Simulated scan of single mutants.
Amino acid sequence: MVIWAASEIWPHQWTANAVAWGATAIALLAVGVHDVRLKARHTDGRLPGWSYRIARGSTAIATAAVVFSALPSLVFLP
């Protein structure tokens, strides 16, 4: 949402791209922290096999969504 809002506030400007890149880095960091927590819960035995696989797949989909939401800021540089 931050990336979309930045592109609406500052259309075709470097400010929007900088905000998009920063928000992407923060979002990928958050997904990475979540992935580490998933691995820890699975290792402790608190997350069974199928639940772990579904959670890992959801994390992969979330990572792809974050990357693809920032893609226009890389392709359409002002």
Score class of each variant (00 low, 15 high):
7 S>E: 14
11 P>C: 09
46 R>N: 13
37 R>T: 04
24 T>N: 12
58 S>H: 03
77 L>K: 07
13 Q>M: 07
38 L>Q: 13
33 V>C: 05
21 W>E: 04
47 L>W: 04
54 I>E: 04
48 P>R: 12
77 L>Q: 08
21 W>Y: 12
69 S>L: 15
16 A>V: 08
73 S>E: 06
19 V>N: 05
28 L>T: 01
18 A>V: 02
11 P>I: 12
32 G>C: 03
50 W>Q: 00
3 I>G: 06
41 R>Y: 02
30 A>M: 12
73 S>R: 11
40 A>V: 15
18 A>Q: 06
76 F>R: 10
54 I>N: 00
7 S>Q: 15
38 L>W: 09
76 F>W: 15
31 V>W: 06
53 R>L: 10
50 W>A: 12
23 A>L: 07
9 I>K: 06
37 R>H: 07
10 W>P: 04
63 T>G: 07
76 F>H: 08
77 L>F: 13
54 I>H: 01
69 S>P: 01
70 A>Q: 02
13 Q>I: 00
74 L>M: 12
67 V>Q: 07
45 G>H: 10
45 G>T: 07
3 I>Y: 10
38 L>P: 07
5 A>S: 14
22 G>N: 10
63 T>Q: 01
12 H>M: 13
65 A>N: 05
56 R>D: 06
58 S>F: 09
21 W>G: 03
3 I>T: 10
9 I>L: 11
23 A>R: 04
11 P>R: 11
9 I>H: 04
68 F>Q: 08
17 N>L: 10
57 G>I: 08
34 H>Q: 04
22 G>H: 12
31 V>M: 06
35 D>N: 07
26 I>G: 05
11 P>T: 09
5 A>Y: 09
78 P>I: 05
56 R>E: 09
72 P>D: 13
55 A>F: 02
43 T>F: 15
3 I>K: 14
8 E>S: 14
19 V>C: 02
21 W>I: 02
72 P>A: 13
19 V>D: 00
68 F>R: 06
70 A>N: 05
66 V>F: 01
26 I>F: 15
37 R>P: 00
25 A>T: 14
59 T>W: 02
36 V>T: 00
28 L>C: 02
63 T>N: 03
28 L>F: 04
62 A>E: 00
25 A>Q: 08
10 W>Y: 15
75 V>L: 15
74 L>N: 02
3 I>Q: 14
4 W>L: 10
45 G>A: 03
3 I>N: 11
49 G>E: 07
32 G>Q: 03
64 A>P: 04
37 R>I: 07
48 P>M: 11
74 L>Y: 14
2 V>N: 09
6 A>Y: 15
15 T>N: 00
39 K>E: 11
42 H>Y: 14
60 A>M: 03
63 T>M: 00
50 W>S: 02
39 K>D: 08
7 S>M: 15
61 I>N: 01
52 Y>W: 11
48 P>V: 09
13 Q>E: 11
